[in-house]
């Protein structure tokens, strides 16, 4: 029975991840809160599970010509040493402390992203209204 839940949690995280919205932010709390997996283990699952998914999705996106390799390289090069360094640092933090830091990060990021999306929506809506107004003239 638990296997089914593992797969379902994976599918939920995968859909959000495949849309490029950050599946890990959903998958990790699903795994720790509902399935009682330790924070570090959930993070490891998220990292490893993302790899084959990203390969498949990137092949689809490359065929659609939806990738900009130059910009990707610009972000990847400075990010890699930091990610390796902090992956090592995680080994020295307890899972409980890590999950508290993660929870704070999740809440703050959620609020920031929510506000910025709503702001974008209102801007787009206002632009639309302006257009209609000018057409009526």
């Amino acid at each position: 029975m638990k296997l089914l839940w593992y797969i379902l949690a994976g599918i939920a995280g995968g859909i959000i991840g495949g849309m490029g919205m950050g599946g890990g932010t959903l998958l990790i709390p699903l795994l720790t809160l509902l399935l009682d997996i330790e924070q570090k283990h959930a993070q490891a699952i998220n990292l490893i599970a993302f790899i084959p998914m990203a390969v498949v999705v990137s092949i689809i996106n490359a065929k659609r010509k939806n990738l900009d390799y130059k910009s990707i390289l610009k972000v990847v090069v400075p990010a890699i040493p930091m990610s390796v360094g902090l992956s090592f640092a995680v080994g020295k933090i307890s899972s409980n402390v890590l999950s508290i830091i993660f929870a704070v990060f999740l809440t703050v990021l959620g609020i920031v992203m929510m506000i910025s999306t709503l702001y974008k929506c209102t801007l787009a809506y206002m632009c639309k209204c302006k257009e209609e107004y000018s057409y009526n003239d």
Binding site: G10, A12, I15, G17, G20, I45, I48, A49, V57
Partner: peptide, 20 residues
């Protein structure tokens, strides 16, 4: 646990690209 979750993630990822 991770193997099963990973299988789900791959499936979900493919669905996600088409939903996008």
């Amino acid at each position: 646990s991770g193997g099963w979750v990973s299988a789900g993630v791959i499936l979900g990822g493919i669905i996600g690209t088409f939903v996008m």
